[in-house]
């Protein structure tokens, strides 16, 4: 076993110390601004504060172009597209957050256990990870979503399962090295339970990696959720979902292009915001990136 010395005194952690640097990164700030706008919209929709409802149909007001009353026009059922887009963003955000939260918790714990305890648990977790990683990600999400009941929670679970192995991988590596650090070894040898050592000493050091991974996973989760609903496997109608809105708009794009532009722009902005945030976080939190850009 090699003798490890960390490159710097502070390995990957210390998010709090580096947090202000996040705000100095223009990419992160742009990302945050975009996300904040979308989040406000989503909250407004969730609390029903928008002028129109996302579900009520008005057959007489079908396929109207954008106007003062309907900012993004109406769809084939006369529903306000702006409200539906906001609700769709809320839906995507909910699913993405739930999925990534689940994946983070499960994946990080599994990665910690695998890296710290090694041995049989490492073997088992490693095997499961390999199996899950043997599938192309979207295909796995697709297959899982197709066999489970169709509601937002099962979609989130499907995405979470795809993402768990990634978090396992991301945490396991650093944990393997961190467990060799003197103070960790010392803590173990003084009789502290290995579990406590793991939580108290090892985990804080990998938080920045996890934070970055979370931001980037969120962007993938949003894309996957949209793809799944485009293929008809996401949240069932009439609940608005950006992917299914685009699916419906496909037949209408020649007569009513706003039915596609609204949700399309929303998805792209959402993912761009998350990607920028992830980039910015990485620049701020990852010491290795210093001096490279």
């Amino acid at each position: 076993m090699t003798d490890l010395t960390p490159a710097t005194g502070i390995p990957a952690g210390a998010v709090r110390q580096r947090a202000p640097r996040i705000l100095r990164s223009p990419t992160a700030v742009t990302g945050l601004v975009v996300l904040a706008v979308l989040l406000v919209l989503a909250l407004l929709s969730a609390f029903g504060l928008l002028p129109h409802d996302a579900i009520t149909q008005e057959p007489t007001a079908r396929l109207q172009s954008p106007s003062g009353d309907h900012l993004l026009g109406t769809d084939q059922f006369g529903r306000d597209i702006f409200a539906r887009v906001a609700a769709g963003v809320a839906n995507s955000a909910l699913i993405a957050v739930v999925a990534v939260a689940f994946a983070t918790v499960v994946g990080t714990l599994a990665g910690l256990v695998a890296g710290f305890y090694r041995g049989a648990s490492d073997g088992l977790i490693g095997g499961v990870t390999n199996v899950l990683l043997a599938f192309p990600p979207l295909l796995l999400a697709l297959s899982l979503a197709s066999v489970l009941d169709r509601n937002w929670f099962t979609v989130a679970v499907a995405i979470a399962i795809v993402y768990v192995p990634i978090f396992i991988r991301v945490t396991r590596g650093p944990v393997l090295s961190l467990r060799e650090i003197e103070y960790v070894k010392a803590a173990v040898s003084t009789g502290q339970s290995r579990w406590m050592v793991m939580i108290r000493h090892v985990l804080p050091n990998i938080t920045s990696i996890i934070v970055i991974q979370v931001a980037l996973s969120l962007s993938w989760a949003v894309l996957t959720e949209a793809s799944l609903s485009f293929l008809g496997l996401g949240t069932p109608p009439p609940a608005p979902s950006l992917g299914s809105m685009i699916l419906d708009a496909r037949t209408l794009v020649y007569v009513a292009p706003w039915t596609m532009i609204g949700p399309g722009v929303a998805i792209v902005l959402f993912v761009v915001g998350l990607n920028l945030l992830g980039d910015g976080l990485r620049d701020a939190l990852d010491p290795r990136s210093r001096g490279r850009r």
């Binding site: 010395t5 490159a7 073997g123 991988r169 650093p174 090295s177 990696i209 970055i212 990607n275 992830g278």
Partner: peptide, 30 residues
Amino acid sequence: ARSRRHVRPVLHQHGQPEQGGRLQLPQARP
């Protein structure tokens, strides 16, 4: 079904382009 941990070179993994943060391993030196 045996799940075996096998040694694989570092470079080979699959993934989504939009995932992944950068890893920082204390001992890794670019």
